[in-house]
Structure formats: structure tokens, C-alpha cells
Design a protein around this nucleic acid. Sequence first.
DNA 1: TATTGTTATACTCTATAACTATA
DNA 2: TATAGTTATAGAGTATAACAATA
Lengths: 168, 168
Amino acid sequence: MSDPAPGLNSAQLGAYFALMEVSSLLQYAVDEHLRADGDLSWVQFQILARLTDAPGGRLRMTDLADGVVYSRSGLTYQAGLLDKRGLITRAPSPDDERSVMVTVTDAGRALVGQVLPGHVDRVRQLLIEPMTGTDVAALSAVLGRVRDHMRANPPRSAKPRAGRNRAG
Amino acid sequence: MSDPAPGLNSAQLGAYFALMEVSSLLQYAVDEHLRADGDLSWVQFQILARLTDAPGGRLRMTDLADGVVYSRSGLTYQAGLLDKRGLITRAPSPDDERSVMVTVTDAGRALVGQVLPGHVDRVRQLLIEPMTGTDVAALSAVLGRVRDHMRANPPRSAKPRAGRNRAG
DNA sequence: TATTGTTATACTCTATAACTATA
DNA sequence: TATAGTTATAGAGTATAACAATA
């Protein structure tokens, strides 16, 4: 388990470096497409996509922050941009007046619909294409487990209030 | 996941989402540590690490840009910061007066040595620990193949001069 | 008091284009 | 002309802290 040696062996290093490089390249490519095709940042796209998938097309800011952003103000900033463009609306929640319910507008759904095909194309072309079906299944399973582990063991300094603390 | 994105099945989507989330969380954790322990950004750490690994501790700016940064000016900026802190030096290459040779200083090596253990700790704790040895090997192999594919098939808009074009 | 969200502010980083110098 | 690198500039994004309002 815990390798007593100070470093990582070559397979471990290989996994680490490959992960970082693949994700960086994919992120860059995808970001670029979203910007060109829909004038959306990655974060903005994620917000819209999550809302589109949510029942009623709406979520609280807090739910939205979770996993999308690392600070509350960052989400407020991005939501402000989407709001300004008419892609979402924000209104106080009836249940809890402190909360803000964010809702995708028709324009927001339309934009997601416009951008999604090209987005998926890039992901398939860059990430999926070089893998076999077995590879994809294995990758999904392994990284899913890693993700669960990361959520359960957040970095020590994880802020009590910022996003990403899904473990609690 | 009401209606899966057109063209990607759930395993493919799962692999995509897990990859993005895992890399995001890992990046965040690692970045945070580097900042706290050595006042280094991820890019700066990569520059220093690459130089430390290079023969003679030196590389040309162009070699350094390759895979670390997406624009030349970005590298100049980061190198400028490292230079100011005495962690690297820059001098025109004797071979080609257009090139700049970047060299790690002793202070730069010392800082890498100071930061590396904690860095490795985080990577192991977050990424390696939840995987079996077989998982690690499989992840490394699959992502290595994906990385090679991405390098060989850069996004259409890849700039002719910016970094990341290792395909040639 | 704790939680939800916004705002003000300052800062880091990035990218584009114009520029210099060398090949 | 093409390549290597820097600089000026401008913009996007982020984080922290102070803030208001509700629970």
C-alpha cells in the first residue's frame, strides 16, 4: 500500500503525468471550442449543462457551486455573466429566502443544444477514439473510484464553505 | 442524465466526466500545496522540475514551452518570475543567438527538493492510494495512448507557433 | 450564530499583436 | 522570410474579506 520509498515508481508517475497532460489538452481543446462556438467558458457551460439536466431546469446556487467552482464569489461572477446574457434567471427560493434558485432560460437551453454536438465531437475525437470499449469502461470505473476517494478525502485545507466539499 | 449527450454512451460520458473532475480536484490540491509550501504555481513547478531533470539543468525556452504552456508570452512571464527569484538564469544560447538557454540555479534545485516530498505525498494520497497496482498500470497505459493520440491529432486551431505542438 | 449569496478589491494569469534580433 | 523571444496591453477569472439578509 503505502510505498515507504519517498517517491513514486515509474508506473505511478506515468499515470500521474499522463492524467495531467491528457486533461490539460482536453480541457484546452474543449474550452476553445466552447468559446468559439458559443462564447462560453468551461465553467459557464458546466453551469448550463447541469441546469439543463436538473428537474425543472433549476438548482440553488449552492448546489451549482458544488463541483463546478472553488469559491462562492466565482460562481456569482459566472452566473452574473450568464444572467446578463439571458441564459439563466435568478430568484430567491420560496423555501429558504436566503437561497437563490437559478433557472435555465429557453435561450440557455438553445445555446446548450447548439454547442453540445461540437463539444461531444471534440471529446470523442480526442478522448474516446483512441480507446477500445474495454478501455473506456476500465477508465470510467477506475477514475470513478478515484473521484469518490477524492471527495471523501478532501485536501486538508479545503475551505469549510467553498464548493467541492461534497464529502460532508 | 435524462437524455445522454448525442453520440456518447453512458460509459463514455462517465469516463469523460470522471477524468475532468479527478484532474480538476488533483490540480487544485497540488496547486494549493505548491503555493503554500514553495510559493510556486503549477506551471512554475513544472518548469523547475523539467530543468532539474534535463542534462546540465538547462533547456531552451522553446523546449520548455512545449507541453507546459499554451503561449510564448506566458512562458516568458513565468520565467521572468522565476528569474526574479533567483531560481533560474537565462542567457542567449551560444549555438543559436536567437535562443535563450534557461538554467536552474542551486536555489531552484533546492526549492524543488523542498517541495517535492509534499507534492508526491498529495499525489499518492489522492490519486494513487485508491487504486490497485493493476489499476495504476492500466491507467498509465490507456492514458499514455490517449496522450499520444492527442499529440498526433492536435485541435484544428492549434497555433503554429504556440506550445503543445509536439506532433511534428 | 450559522448559512446563503453578493460585492469590492486586488491580484494572477493568459493571449494577442507589435517588436527586436538572429538564421 | 522564418524562427526565438520579449514587451505592452488588455481582458478573463479567481480569491479574500467585508457585507446584508435569512434561518
